[in-house]
Design a protein around this nucleic acid. Structure first.
Lengths: 245, 245
DNA sequence: GCAATAGTGTCTATCAGACAATATAGC
DNA sequence: GCTATATTGTCTGATAGACACTATTGC
């Protein structure tokens, strides 16, 4: 039997299979804190609880394409830095049926984060704070919500708190050896803004001269020649991210 | 409608969905080189080519459990360090039908690697060497096979060369900030063996005193008090990996 | 000149690479 | 004592943190 003959007789529906979904962690930094955009579920299961935007993967759609579609349709965002995070496959993670979910991390500059919030009234920002649950437990994302600062802690739907916790940990891990940090900034930015983003993600203050030295020595920053405006003090130099060769 | 009513009327088979598989990269270090265990495909598609051991994910099985099952059934290995690598979702990656595959990395000590090879005649080791395909292309795993050293380069089935390339890169990246390296060693080992494993994975020689210092300062090594035997020169101290607290 | 922040200089602690010296097993 | 490798000591260069200093803008 040739490969062509084999394929023509193959029955793709022979076995029952899990459903496959993509969930997005839409992360941004607002007011010096990392946050994620959540949707309030209107349907069962977990109706009324907050959840990550997500959807099923189409039969003719790559995982990346599914993530882009959800970004567009559910969050109203045209483009963002997207990267695959982890695939969650616990058997009972969704009460409807077996659903395996490929989680993606989407990074938004502050502007895009706020615009998504304004454009989609059903979106809510949640501030992410990761804490460690003692010896035995792993990291846990503690969340609070509200369109303004403050707001009550959230109980998230499904295993979405785990996904959020992993997202912030992954981002922390990659922040200083990769260029992901720039995805959280506008096209032009000052070194102070860059440092603010790093400090928000890492949750700690950084040494200013050392941070500047490191960033400038990497060769990823191109001076634009112009400076920020609107300050009543010395304006900072504006830089642009230049992809390393 | 309550959540219970909703669930009782929900039809899990309403949409067509991709199939979901797990593929394993069974990695070990042999003769100072990183290698992976491959299976020769006996059926279409890609009959006769080498491929990673894999299988479909059962409906009542987590992804981790599926990986363990494949490790047991296809490679005859009872236990190994297993970690999820990445999920591959290109639409045409398998000609039979749409199959999304969650790739796992399994790490084997040299002994287990060799035993798997002896116990399963259909397994073949492939030496992994990663090279960069010029400016535009990403990293590519160059492979050669053979039960002994030497052997011709391999053309792998499906997108398994990409998976292999990612596996070695991931391992390289994690090697010196995590404890994965120990999964490639027996329970007791010398510092030289530990360094050999690191050098094989990184593909370059390391500075001996610096390596020793770093490893000992981490506090992950517990001296067993005994020494290796069978040498005609000064025997090295044996250590045990002690999980950091 | 004052306030406030941008940007720089310098000292020190830490850590990795280089290289050489010393230790110890079997023979 | 000889061989081969284990193990340690020390020098040096690179880098991060600490801290203080200088620069520059609007007012």
């Amino acid at each position: 039997m040739s490969e062509a003959e084999f394929l023509s007789t193959y029955d793709p529906a022979a076995y029952e299979r899990p459903a496959l979904a993509v969930d997005l962690v839409l992360m941004g930094v607002r007011d010096g804190r990392p946050g994620a955009l959540l949707l309030k579920r209107t349907e069962h299961p977990h109706a009324g609880r907050w959840a990550l935007p997500g959807g099923f993967v189409g039969l003719d759609e790559t995982l990346d394409a599914a993530a882009e579609r959800i970004l567009r349709d559910k969050a109203g965002i045209a483009r963002a830095h997207l990267e695959q995070l982890y695939t969650f496959g616990a058997v009972e993670r969704d009460p409807r049926m077996r659903i395996v979910s490929v989680a993606y991390l989407a990074l938004l500059p502050e502007r895009a984060f706020s615009e998504a919030l304004d454009g989609m009234p059903e979106l809510s920002p949640a501030v992410i704070a990761v804490s460690w649950a003692g010896e035995a437990g792993g990291p846990v994302a503690a969340l609070s919500t509200g369109r303004r600062a403050g707001g009550e802690p959230l109980g998230l739907a499904f295993d979405h708190a785990d996904i959020l916790a992993l997202a912030i940990l992954r981002l922390r891990g990659k922040l200083d050896y990769s260029d992901v940090g720039f995805a959280l900034l506008p096209e032009q930015f000052t070194l102070r803004q860059l440092q603010d983003v790093h400090e928000a993600i890492l949750g700690k203050a950084l040494n200013k001269p050392a941070f500047r030295r490191r960033m400038l020595d990497r060769g990823w920053l191109e001076p634009t020649g112009s400076r920020e405006g609107g300050t009543s003090f010395r304006p900072a130099e504006l830089y642009r991210f230049r992809r390393p060769r």
